[in-house]
Design a protein around this nucleic acid. Structure first.
Lengths: 328, 328
DNA sequence: TCAAAAGTGTTATCCTTACACCCATGT
DNA sequence: ACATGGGTGTAAGGATAACACTTTTGA
């Protein structure tokens, strides 16, 4: 017997406001397609879910168009930048399968929108780092990380002698405990490691055992949506370096401080102010407009714009070494 | 009416031998699922196709496992490194749709294997640059590029006044005609531009008009497989910079020259020998074994190995700025 | 006048590039 | 001996990181 396959679309819709990266979530309670039978952990759990929409092979010419239409309709906002993230199809990723539903394959997209107001019933903006708190190093080493390291140490010790070395190596690489230090890009690798180690509550939910036997970290999301979020955050952190994607998230005119705050929010790192300014200006990525913004508190800041010509001039126009020297 | 959806898997299987990047292709003539009715351009055309396999939602636990099993079975080779590339689902991408077949969605993967012998009936290794000749700059500016530039100039002029600027900007960015110069990473962007400009024969095939009205470049592939190949080549060129993926393509022991040739083959660039050696050695990516290879012609070369510890030591362990200084 | 944020200058250090040169082997 | 490729040294130039410092506003 060949089961049916259905294709869905998921969107990680990111914005930055108040120096926090936000992701648009919906309340799965409101999603009509989830049957009540799934009980604990899904309906009634209050878990946040990523917005998802259908892909209708009879109607939709392309995946991206389907996504755009569907997001536009739901959020009443024009999403500019969209890119495909990954296709998720692991067995059991959608709990409806357990009730005899079709195998659901989901193509996830990343969308970037400006911090303007997207205010739709049943959806809200949530801080990305509520779900992935260990990813935010702007205030120095996150508190969670010590506890996390201890829990991972337990996971390493829980395996046989031979595998411990591999586990330890993996932990060290993912979390930068070696000489390499923290690498902001490996968001997904870290989430997957925590999942395998039983340190996120989705692991226990997927086991059908909603009570974690041990510490868990970060707020959970419905289904495998936290994994998808991690994929999205990792992707944009990587892309920041060599593509001018930051500008999709801010207004046309911005101050250098404002730009820095957005880069910091996404990368989860605190950057060195003076050098950030210089690097960005020298890179040709922006140009001054001559106008000033005097809502800044101190001395008014000059407003800058993205310089489109940089695309012709530089090979990998992004905020470089993620991005400039770090502060702290 | 909602049409059926079917999910297939495609693999871009890359190896490097004789300093050429190779891709494993099959003869679509041999693929049982292609009906004869599709006539010109598909069956009987002799076009190369990427190997493809089924995804069976009833059997396969994950996409990657399905791919691994299926490739293993076809090529009798253990593919080590595998990564998901992209999911293709544009309407009309599979000509069977025109005959009332289901909508076929294809999840493409990139696999890297060592140059050893994979010799299977109905499949063969072909030079990647036969399909994408403008991507090989190892011998200086490729011949095709002048002709290509002229043809693109025609495409720019063929649009209304307003759009010409945009078209010209896009051409300049993609092909590095501006100050930025050639960017090896943008393989897909270039292919898509050529497709839109009618400069690859797939464009005419998709129109149902197998006779191109103008020059076309590179050997065509069946369906949208050349687009998939371009995606794969772009991906590995990007990844080379910050992940030690080269080592998936070579034997455990290698000379630095050998390593350089593989990097050059993939990146399509000629590199500066002395500095490549030093950069690679200093990076901690490799370690000498003390043993020598005396098949090299001149003085025997030391054999090196990948140094796994580098993963703990360096944040983005790859062959850097793609990769080291260029020669020529 | 002070706090807060904008913006400039300078220097030590490291990395990259380019070039020149020597070494070991087979023919 | 010489061709071929392996391998090392060094110095110029550029980019980066860390520092101290001045400027301009609002309260």
């Amino acid at each position: 017997m060949t089961a049916r396959t259905e294709v869905g679309l998921n969107a990680v819709i990111l914005a930055v406001s108040d120096q926090q990266p936000r992701v648009l979530t919906v309340d799965p309670e409101q999603l009509p397609e989830i049957p009540d039978a799934l009980g604990p952990g899904i309906k009634g759990s209050g878990l946040a879910a990523l917005p998802s929409g259908p892909f209708d092979p009879a109607q939709d010419r392309t995946l991206e168009l389907a996504l755009r239409n569907w997001v536009q309709w739901q959020t009443k906002t024009d999403i500019g930048y969209v890119e495909q993230l990954y296709t998720f199809a692991d067995q059991g990723r959608d709990p409806r399968e357990r009730l005899g539903g079709p195998r659901v394959l989901s193509v996830a997209y990343l969308a970037l929108i400006k911090e303007g107001t997207v205010d739709v019933a049943h959806s809200r903006w949530q801080d990305c780092y509520a779900f992935l708190p260990w990813e935010d190093w702007r205030g120095g080493k996150p508190e969670a990380i010590e506890e996390l390291a201890a829990a991972l140490e337990g996971w390493i010790g829980a395996d046989g002698r031979a595998n411990r070395r591999q586990r330890r190596e993996r932990v060290e690489i993912c979390f930068g405990f070696g000489d390499a230090g923290w690498d902001g890009y490996q968001v997904l690798e870290r989430y997957e490691l925590l999942y395998e180690a039983g340190l996120v509550s989705e692991y226990w939910l997927d086991l059908g055992d909603p009570k974690p036997r041990g510490p868990v970290f970060g707020a959970p999301m419905a289904y495998d949506h936290r994994r998808i979020l991690a994929t999205g955050l990792g992707r944009i952190r990587g892309k920041l370096r060599y593509r001018p994607v930051v500008f999709e998230l801010i207004e046309r005119d911005f101050t250098l401080m404002g730009l820095q705050h957005v880069v910091e929010a996404l990368s989860g790192l605190r950057l060195h102010k003076q050098n950030f300014r210089r690097l960005v200006e020298r890179s040709g990525l922006v140009e001054g407009t001559g106008r000033l913004d005097n809502r800044t508190g101190g001395r008014p800041a000059e407003l800058f714009r993205f310089r489109r010509e940089v695309l012709r001039e530089r090979r990998a126009p992004g905020v470089g070494a993620l991005a400039g020297p770090r502060a702290d």
